[in-house]
Simulated scan of single mutants.
Amino acid sequence: MEGVEEKVVESVAEVAVQTKTMLHLDELMAYLTWGNLMKVVVAFISVLVFYVVYRIIKHIIKKQAAPRVEKHTYMLINKFVSYMFYVIIVMYILSLFGINLKAIWGAAGVAGLAIGFAAQTSVSNLISGVFVLSEKAMKIGDFIQVGDVFGTVDSVGLLSVRVHTLDNQMVRIPNSSVINSNLVNFNHYDIRRFVFDMPISYDSNMEKALEVANSIPGKCPVVLQNPVPCVYFDGFGDAINIKIAVWFNCSDLINAKNQMYAAIVNTCREQGIEIPYTHYDVKILNK
């Protein structure tokens, strides 16, 4: 009896599986109608047409916009066009098959609201990114400082700014930090100024020292003579301090420092101007 019952159960299970398979096949065959097939063909042709138009628009943007706008702005325009193409394609295909887009937009709105509350930091960075891009305070290739981070800008996006530091490390700076901190762009202008210290001894002739200091910028090829270098006394301390403010091209920062410091030391030695430094006298007492 037990063997008979097992066979009956197996037979019922096989019939159930076969019935379920037949139902799926019937559903599939019901879907594969000439009307739906035509919709697929129309969708394929439409996507192909949209793609051709999309490539033409991208080509126009590359030829017309790329030479006229900043590199990061061009990249954002390019991404925006790509995202719009994908959205239009998806929406068109869904509408072609009779899917209610209003329900999808409603669900997307609710989901977007929930995601917005859950990702307030990202939303803040997104809004800050709009201000960063609109202000045009930096561009790709600029050397900037945000907080304690120094680096060359690699990309400016809607969420963050990516830079690589002088030791070639990538640092991602959130746009909210850029907006809420002091941004220093060392390459925003073509030229910049740097002030060098030239301490002299109290025994030095101040008029001669000032004359010597005025001659130093002219000995440095990378230092610009327009704007004119500025030399002035800047108070007393362990030494009499002279400031030498010079202008140079932003790309010549390292050369300007090397040439100026070398010229200060060499010129002072030649002219007998003493540069004081801290030194100690050590006396050994015999007991």
Rank of each mutant, 00 (worst) to 15 (best):
S124A: 07
N125I: 06
N125D: 15
N125P: 03
N125T: 07
N125Q: 13
L126K: 08
L126R: 05
L126P: 03
I127K: 08
I127P: 00
I127E: 03
S128W: 02
G129R: 00
V130R: 12
V130T: 04
V130C: 05
F131Q: 01
F131M: 07
V132M: 00
V132P: 00
L133D: 08
L133N: 10
L133H: 07
L133G: 11
L133R: 14
L133I: 10
S134I: 04
E135W: 06
E135T: 06
E135Y: 07
K136D: 08
K136Y: 03
K136A: 11
A137H: 04
A137I: 05
M138R: 00
M138D: 05
M138H: 05
K139N: 12
K139S: 10
K139R: 09
K139F: 00
K139H: 02
I140G: 08
I140T: 05
I140K: 12
G141A: 13
G141D: 05
G141I: 03
G141Y: 05
G141Q: 07
G141L: 11
D142W: 06
D142N: 13
F143E: 07
I144N: 12
I144P: 09
I144Q: 04
V146T: 08
D148L: 09
D148P: 01
D148H: 05
D148F: 02
V149E: 14
V149N: 03
F150T: 14
G151W: 01
G151Q: 01
G151K: 01
G151H: 04
T152R: 15
T152S: 15
V153R: 06
V153F: 06
D154A: 09
D154Q: 15
D154V: 13
D154E: 15
D154H: 14
D154L: 10
S155H: 12
S155Q: 14
S155P: 04
V156D: 06
V156M: 14
V156E: 09
V156Y: 03
G157M: 13
L158T: 15
L158M: 15
L158P: 03
L159G: 02
L159K: 08
L159S: 13
S160I: 08
V161S: 04
V161F: 04
V161R: 10
V161A: 05
R162T: 12
R162E: 14
V163K: 01
H164F: 08
T165E: 00
T165I: 14
T165K: 02
T165M: 02
L166C: 10
L166H: 10
L166M: 14
D167Q: 01
D167S: 08
N168E: 13
Q169L: 07
M170F: 13
M170T: 14
